[in-house]
């Protein structure tokens, strides 16, 4: 029978095992993220993940400090994480008033500006994409509703879109009929008809992004893979 989380934590306290510890932390990363996000009621941005690091440290701390007599480990861990995050916020607000390290502040500001710039560029491209997708009767809401439930073949959809965009006959038919020529796409890309059918809206979005030269969005598709 598998051990409960609480038992595993106690075991780690008695005899630390880096592998198990890391596995547990990794497994509960979503929990840690959720705890912070719910505390803030805001999402954590990818470039600003200082808070997440603190959350990880706090979770690790909770592993060391958990007492068997307490209620569930996760309840305990949640409180530790929230306390550490709140503490970090207090320090941050005091920090900006102090400006002890001008260099550090400048660096952070530059990064923030960089980030903002990137956001603005992406926003422009996203609006352009939205406009272009209207031609096909598509909008982001429709794309969200049509997203298939299973986790599998999604990476394929991006690849299919990229390859498809290189074939002029596919592009012609697409813009002419305002619909994805499923059979043709399947033939030219090697993807099964089922995959093409299931992801047809997304594939259209990829093709349009490529054709309209929305490079930042393209970067997003490719990098985060």
């Amino acid at each position: 029978m598998p051990l409960t989380l609480e038992k595993q934590i106690i075991q780690l306290q008695n005899q630390d095992d880096a592998k198990t510890r890391n596995e547990i932390i990794k497994a509960y990363e979503p929990f840690i993220l959720n705890t912070i996000v719910q505390l803030k009621n805001a999402y954590i941005q990818i470039e600003n993940d200082e808070e997440f690091s603190i959350g990880l440290l706090a979770f690790n701390e909770a592993i060391d400090k958990y007492d068997e007599a307490r209620s569930s480990f996760l309840t305990f861990a949640k409180v530790v994480i929230e306390s550490r995050i709140k503490n970090y916020w207090e320090k941050e607000s005091r920090h900006s008033a102090d400006s002890l390290d001008a260099n550090q502040n400048a660096k952070e500001e530059l990064m923030a500006i960089d980030n903002l710039e990137k956001t603005m560029i992406l926003r422009q491209e996203i609006h352009q994409l939205e406009t272009k997708l209207e031609i096909f009767g598509l909008d982001f809401n429709k794309l969200a509703d049509a997203s298939p439930k299973h986790r599998d073949s999604k990476k394929n959809a991006i690849d299919v879109g990229i390859i498809a965009s290189k074939h002029d006959d596919i592009i012609q038919k697409l813009y002419l009929k305002r619909k994805l020529p499923i059979l043709l796409v399947s033939q030219k890309t090697g993807a099964s008809i089922k995959v093409v059918k299931t992801n047809k809206f997304f594939i259209i979005a990829v093709i349009v992004s490529i054709k309209e030269n929305l490079t930042s969005i393209m970067e997003w598709f490719m990098n985060e893979n």
Partner: peptide, 9 residues
């Protein structure tokens, strides 16, 4: 904000 890159579960 549109254009933001976030982490979610």
């Amino acid at each position: 904000q549109i254009g933001m890159r976030i982490q979610f579960t």
